[in-house]
Design a protein around this nucleic acid. Structure first.
Lengths: 194, 194
DNA sequence: AAGGTGGATGTCGCTTTGTGACATGACCGT
DNA sequence: ACGGTCATGTCACAAAGCGACATCCACCTT
């Protein structure tokens, strides 16, 4: 079936996972999430339904393949930083903005449109967000920050990022994500100040 | 609703929805969420699987029947308040703490144990949380608070509540939820202050 | 060079979720 | 009594997700 022979090379086409993720993105954009079956996705990638479930936990996960990378960058940025907890977290998210989101507004918008069209996908994205915040909190605790303060700083940073992200993706926006993060952080400080 | 005649005999037992929610809670606690099928739940409530799906959108929803009430209380509290946005939100959550959670620690713990045992349920709870925060933000905007400030105040209040809630439910806790909310709010201010 | 090993893939069959279409049986107003 | 309505039950079905087993072929061992 998938046995290709580029000069007696691989038995299967390379990067099955990547092909499945790409096929899923295409199909979700074309027909919508609910109207796309896992069998469809696998077929477009030249694979079997069962293979999809070996590489992804469920149908939604195909849209969130790259999100481990975010955690890596965030945790590393926090481990290297030396400022106050909240500033550290905000700086870490700004680094993510520059290293993974800058220059990809168009494709991010496509993805975001898909997510906003399906409650199931929104739930999954929320979980990813929370998981990221938990990793950030753990990284802060590893630097000696107290339990509650670490959680609050991580969650607040997450909030700032989500607000800024929404503004960045909104139609007509011209400002960079990193700048929007800085603005949102400043406004959060203002909102919580007595 | 569930037509039971006062004088005559009822065709159906009253409160089908409540019976299903109760049956679901029991079974989830007994065997776990995954090991409980919708048919099981319906059977214990003396109803049919199809009836379950008419009253609840999906299996998880049976655990979240009462969460509309929270939104009502929150929105009302915010509409009546007159303080700064963040203080208003924190006060609203404290009101929820007193009006719906006070005195129910034991049953809340049972429920929370179930939720923590299933990623699917955690996703749903997250969505409820976000939905609540969105309603709070809308209530703030209705009072003239700016878009971004309303969102940030609502999300920060939500964060404070979640942190306090986790502490309240944690084993060995003796402090009231309302007090924990106040403490968390104070610590959030400290964390985000320069 | 023969043969074995292993990891990735395909095939089969099953349970469960969630939904549409239709049937049933009591309540209600007329 | 009649027809309508509303909650529920029954039947059928697509799709999700997973366990068990078969298959294929690069690579390794001898």
């Amino acid at each position: 079936m998938t046995s290709d022979t580029i000069g007696g090379m691989a038995r299967w086409q390379p990067d099955a996972r990547g092909r499945l993720a790409a096929a899923a993105l295409e199909l979700f954009a074309e027909r919508g999430f609910d109207q796309t079956t896992v069998t469809d996705i696998a077929a477009r990638a030249g694979l079997d339904k069962r293979t999809f479930y070996r590489l992804f936990g469920d149908k939604r996960e195909a849209l969130f393949s790259g999100s481990d990378q975010l955690e890596t960058i965030l945790v590393k940025a926090i481990a290297e930083a030396g400022a106050a907890p909240f500033d550290t977290v905000v700086a870490a998210y700004r680094r993510v903005a520059e290293e993974v989101f800058a220059g990809r507004l168009d494709s991010v918008r496509v993805r975001q449109t898909i997510i906003e069209s399906s409650p199931e996908l929104q739930e999954r994205e929320l979980r990813k967000t929370v998981s990221l915040a938990a990793a950030v909190a753990a990284a802060l605790r590893a630097k000696g920050v107290g339990e509650t303060a670490a959680t609050l700083a991580a969650e607040s940073g997450s909030t700032v990022f989500r607000v800024a992200f929404a503004q960045w993706v909104a139609p007509g926006n011209e400002t960079s994500l990193a700048d929007l993060i800085a603005e949102a952080a400043a406004e959060l400080r203002a909102v919580t100040s007595p």
